[in-house]
């Protein structure tokens, strides 16, 4: 018998409550390598699959601090070191006037860090992902909710896992070829 490697088992649900319920029970049953897909963000779903923390806030914080420091340093370097001009008798290091640009640079760098940090931590761009081998998965960006148990999970067993997922009465269960 020809054997194609399996990426995981995917169950399809048609409402958010069902997928959150299934995800929570699956996680509680000991499956840790699971993931879920929904057309819109569901905060409870991340919690349900045991995804409590991510590092985007930390990346944003570091980006913001670096942005603020570089914004201030830029102005300090220009006004104090490179091209010192006394304006209206004010000190060269006129920090109150620097705050606006410093603030804007903080926001800019934090924003850019948020976007690119999120992309990097998600492993994007990703030209190939096995879940798209299941044709029905296209509905995940429309009105269906998917839960997947990866075959790499130590508790994964093609038959038992399928039976377990069936207990949530999903609309369909598909084996995802990798």
């Amino acid at each position: 018998m020809k054997h194609t490697p399996v990426y995981g088992l995917m169950a399809e649900f048609d409402n958010p409550e069902a997928v959150v319920h299934a995800a929570r029970k699956t996680y509680e049953a000991g499956y840790k390598k699971i993931d879920a897909y929904s057309p819109f963000p569901i905060e409870a779903l991340s919690e349900a699959i045991g995804f409590h923390y991510n590092f985007v806030p930390l990346v944003v914080l570091i980006g913001g601090i670096l942005g603020g420091l570089s914004g201030f340093a830029l102005q300090y370097w220009i006004h104090v070191i490179n091209y010192p001009v006394v304006v209206g008798g004010r000190p060269l290091n006129s920090w109150p006037a620097f705050i606006v640009v410093t603030f804007e640079m903080t926001i800019l760098f934090a924003g850019i860090s948020a976007v690119f940090g999120m992309l990097a931590l998600n492993g994007l761009p990703m030209p190939y992902h096995p879940v798209f081998n299941v044709p029905r998965f296209a509905l995940a960006s429309k009105d269906r909710f998917f839960l997947i148990v990866f075959s790499s999970d130590p508790r994964y067993n093609a038959l038992e896992t399928r039976r377990f997922l069936e207990s949530f009465s999903p609309r369909s269960i598909s084996e995802v070829p990798s």
Binding site: G88, R90, P96, A97, I99, V100
Partner: peptide
């Protein structure tokens, strides 16, 4: 609060 301070400080 900062805007008020900045404008008044800059105008002097």
């Amino acid at each position: 609060s900062f805007s008020q301070w900045l404008i008044i400080w800059a105008g002097d």
